[in-house]
Amino acid sequence: MLSYMITKDSHSQHILQKLEQHSNIGNVGLLNGLAGESLYYFYRSELLDEDASYDTAVLKLQQVM
C-alpha cells in the first residue's frame, strides 16, 4: 500500500510539473487551456483535500473570466 501511495504521489507530482511546463496563458479553453486546468485543480482539491490546489483553481478560473 505504501509503495502504491509513493508511486501515486510521484505520478501526481509528475503531472503537476508537466502542467506547469505546458501551461499556456494564451489558451483559455476547456480542452486546451486554462478552463481545463482550473477544473483539474478543483477536482484535485476536492479529492486530495489540498488547499493549494483550490487556490490555483480559483486563480485560473479568474484568468478565464
Binding site: G29, L30, L31, L61
Partner: peptide, 23 residues
C-alpha cells in the same frame, strides 16, 4: 467546445452543479 465559449460555459455550469464552486 474544445477551446471556446461552449466548453467554458459547460465548465462554469458544471462547477455549480457539482457544488465545487459558486459562480
Amino acid at each position: 467546445f474544445y477551446n471556446g465559449l461552449a466548453g467554458i460555459g459547460w465548465f462554469i455550469c458544471h462547477l455549480n452543479e457539482a457544488e465545487i464552486a459558486d459562480v
